[in-house]
């Protein structure tokens, strides 16, 4: 489904990604971990089109998307959940989903007001909100939701928009322990539905619960790519987080 071939990305003399390669097959869930500054979010920005790599290629469903703009990648089926909440806080919860459902509408159609279509989209949106138990807050402003609810809304919005590959950037950051379970359940639901998921997380114990594979980044390159058990027991991981092991 996703093939990243030796991509490099630099800003000035600062090399953020260096000949980074990995592959994801359809329906797989993989975690990405690494210390601060290892290039995790930059990798996501490169995959979703907010940065273009200076070298290397990115293929999604066998299509070269290296130079595609972000909205074209989204249309191809790449969904992104941002590290800093990407919900539209000034809109209602319902409007957030309606906007996602309308994302792929052509310009001409988007300039036409169709009450019938809007009604249908609202009904469809309600069904998504029911999945995350936010139907009763449909008319509330998204800013009134808690951090965890905003996360759920952002993920379900990406589901509504029809993504096949989910790039989740620290989906449980700043989320209360109770809401964390809701976020995890939603991610598990994505897995059950056969979606491909790539998650950035800091907590290896947390992602090994539902990831089949963990990719460890350090200084912009993949240093480990294995099962959660093997990665957790790896000396290399210990080294990058805590410095070199004692002689």
């Amino acid at each position: 489904m996703l093939r990243v071939e030796e991509i490099s990305f630099s800003i000035g003399h600062f090399h953020i990604l260096q000949e980074l390669s990995f592959e994801l097959i359809a329906g797989e869930t993989a975690g990405i971990i690494g210390p601060n500054g290892s290039g995790k979010t930059t990798l996501f920005n490169t995959l979703s089109g907010f940065h273009y790599p200076q070298k290397g290629k990115i293929f999604f469903q066998d299509q070269d998307i290296t130079r595609l703009r972000p909205y074209r990648r989204s249309r191809a089926g790449i969904g992104r959940v941002f590290q800093n909440s990407g919900v539209f806080r000034e809109m209602t919860v319902l409007e957030n989903i309606v906007t996602a459902l309308e994302g792929k509408t052509s310009l001409w159609k988007s300039l036409l007001y169709s009450p019938k279509r809007l009604r249908a989209l609202r009904e469809e949106s309600m069904s998504y909100l029911e999945q995350i138990s936010l139907a009763d807050k449909a008319k509330a402003k998204a800013s009134s939701l808690s951090g965890g609810q905003q996360r759920l809304l952002e993920i379900i919005r990406t589901v509504a928009f029809g993504a096949e590959l989910f790039l989740l950037d620290e989906p449980t950051a700043g989320v209360s322990p109770r809401m964390k379970d809701d976020v995890i359940n939603l991610i598990k639901k994505l897995q059950e539905d056969g979606k491909t998921v790539l998650i950035i997380e800091h907590d290896i114990n947390f992602i090994k619960e539902f990831c089949e594979r963990i990719i460890v980044l350090d200084q912009g390159t993949v240093i480990l790519d294995d099962t959660p058990e093997k990665v957790a027991g790896s000396e290399k991981l210990h080294e990058i987080y805590f410095g070199s092991t004692a002689a």
Partner: peptide, 17 residues
């Protein structure tokens, strides 16, 4: 709605195609 959305977060709007 798309215009309002980009006013809040251009990147999140782009990510919705």
């Amino acid at each position: 709605r798309a215009l309002k959305a980009q006013a809040e977060s251009e990147s999140a709007t782009k990510a919705l195609a």
